[in-house]
Computed example of a mutant assay.
Amino acid sequence: MTHPRKSLNSVIHAPLRFSIVAALASVDEADFKTLREAIEITDSALSKQITLLEQASYVKVRKTFVGKRPRTWLSLTNEGRTAFTRHLTALREIVDWSAANL
């Protein structure tokens, strides 16, 4: 039997990216500022992590203007939601496997 940790998603597994994806999984869309405040991260750190998630096709970035001010909206793609669900399943399988094999 293959250990379930091999099913973990290395892109999502990093704590900051996991926090971002988990937060976005609970909403259709969130603005950058709200997400930043919710997960207690700096603008630059969030921007860097969003770029990695966007490159993996897990997050969609949409830019708009409110008056003359730019606003960035973030959402999980279908691929991102599927990857997150699979990652959560792998985490649960690790717990179950450990309980059954120790």
Rank of each mutant, 00 (worst) to 15 (best):
A56R: 00
I41P: 00
V95M: 08
S7G: 10
H13W: 10
L102T: 13
T34K: 06
A23H: 08
F32I: 06
K33R: 13
K48Y: 04
H13T: 09
L52Y: 07
I41L: 05
R86A: 13
K60T: 10
L52G: 01
D31H: 15
E37H: 12
F18K: 11
F84W: 14
T64V: 03
T34A: 10
G80K: 02
N9A: 11
R62F: 02
A14G: 13
I94V: 09
T64E: 12
S44M: 11
T2P: 15
S57H: 08
R71W: 08
L52C: 06
V95E: 15
V66S: 06
E40H: 05
S57Y: 04
Q55Y: 03
V66W: 06
R86F: 15
T89P: 08
P4I: 06
T85S: 15
E54V: 01
S10M: 15
R5P: 07
R81H: 11
R17Y: 07
K33C: 11
R92H: 14
S98M: 12
A83Y: 04
Y58I: 00
K33Q: 15
A99L: 14
S57D: 10
V95I: 15
T77H: 04
S10P: 10
D96T: 15
T89C: 13
L53E: 00
K63F: 02
K6W: 12
A83N: 07
V21K: 03
R81K: 14
F84C: 09
L76N: 00
V61P: 00
L24V: 04
A100P: 10
L76R: 01
G67W: 01
K68A: 06
K68R: 10
V11D: 12
G80W: 08
A83R: 04
F65G: 03
L52V: 08
T2V: 11
P15K: 13
A38T: 13
S75V: 03
R81Q: 15
T72Y: 04
T89S: 15
P4E: 05
L53S: 00
W73L: 11
L102A: 12
M1I: 11
T64R: 07
L91I: 12
N78K: 09
H13R: 07
A23Y: 05
L16P: 05
L8S: 06
S44G: 05
P4N: 06
H87F: 14
F84N: 07
R81A: 09
E79R: 14
E79Q: 14
T51M: 06
S10H: 15
Q49F: 01
L88M: 13
H87P: 01
Y58R: 00
N101M: 14
P4D: 08
Q49D: 02
R86T: 12
N101W: 12
S19A: 15
S7Q: 14
L52A: 07
I12G: 05
N78P: 09
V11N: 11
I94G: 04
D43W: 04
T64I: 05
K6M: 10
K48V: 03
S98V: 10
G67S: 01
I41N: 01
G67I: 01
A83C: 09
R5W: 13
R81V: 07
V11A: 10
A30C: 13
H13M: 09
D96G: 08
L52F: 07
Y58F: 03
I94H: 09
L53Y: 00
L35C: 08
K48I: 01
